[in-house]
Design a protein around this nucleic acid. Structure first.
Lengths: 148, 148
DNA sequence: CTGAAATTGTAGCCTCGTCTACATTTTGGT
DNA sequence: ACCAAAATGTAGACGAGGCTACAATTTCAG
């Protein structure tokens, strides 16, 4: 059973293809956290004029220590800046990412609603789904929504 | 700015609601890995008659050491069994989970295709998306597909 | 039946994301 | 102006998930 496996079930993807997919899903996941932070910070800036670590933490449902640590990572990756005891600010890169993420989120929610998912459920599911929707799929979503 | 924040932007969810959503997305993520393993093991059993750690590792694109460690977790959680140098087997619980996951995967792919996402892209994106689709959304997908 | 190759298992290390506990700084009410 | 409360920051722990390197077992070709 060394080389003939696939013959028995041609509907199973090749090893390489499957490994690649799982790999992509894994890296999407690692980007997901940063995307969530950036989007939230951007929203807070727009709605209350500032983004404080404590607010971010509360919104995300984590301890403030966790939020501060992740914000450090944001800074390390050039998405945000902050000085001790002052709020957090997004860099241009961070703001651009936030905008992309926000648009994608909207689109995902709209699509879910369009296929019949109740609004609040769509909103909740989108939170997890959005990080795994490729640009190609997003374009398809856009077309689909336009066609209705 | 202690209590009036929401007044300025009523379209932002409440702190509690948002925290809850993020929390759900986080736990979905922690379940995702086990789901992937269980589904893959089940597929391998069906297609080649056995699931060996090395095959699992190659399919997932991780080292065999990583696969073995995660398989231990599967055992710890009552989803699989294995004895040294023998393959991995799913418990009834594991098999049931695999079945649910497989069905959900199909449904997600079908829906993506139905809204116009190209087949291979749908397959790839589904790998990440499926873990975040709630039962309510799944039911909506089913209805939507039936209505065509 | 025997030894090399493949598979399986173990050990140790790293990073990330989370927490609690404690220290420091700012803010605000009196 | 001061002190308590709130916010912020730091330290240390833990589990998950990943890796490489090495050890042990099984398989198989000759």
């Amino acid at each position: 059973m060394t080389k003939l496996e696939r013959a028995e079930r041609p509907d199973m993807p090749t090893e390489a293809a499957q490994a690649h997919r799982f790999g992509k899903a894994r890296s999407a996941q690692s980007a997901a956290l940063l995307e969530d932070y950036v989007e939230l910070i951007s929203d807070l800036m727009a709605s209350v004029g500032e983004a404080r670590p404590t607010d971010v933490a509360r919104r995300l449902g984590v301890s403030h220590a966790t939020a501060i640590k992740t914000i450090s990572r944001l800074k390390r990756e050039g998405l945000a800046t902050s000085r001790p005891y002052r709020g957090v600010f997004l860099t241009d890169d961070g703001e651009a990412l936030a905008e992309r993420v926000r648009k994608r989120h909207r689109l995902v929610v709209d699509l879910l609603v369009a296929v019949g998912v109740p609004g609040d459920c769509a909103e909740a599911d989108a939170e997890g789904i959005e990080h795994h929707v490729s640009d190609v799929a997003l374009a398809a979503f856009r077309d689909f929504l336009a066609r209705r």
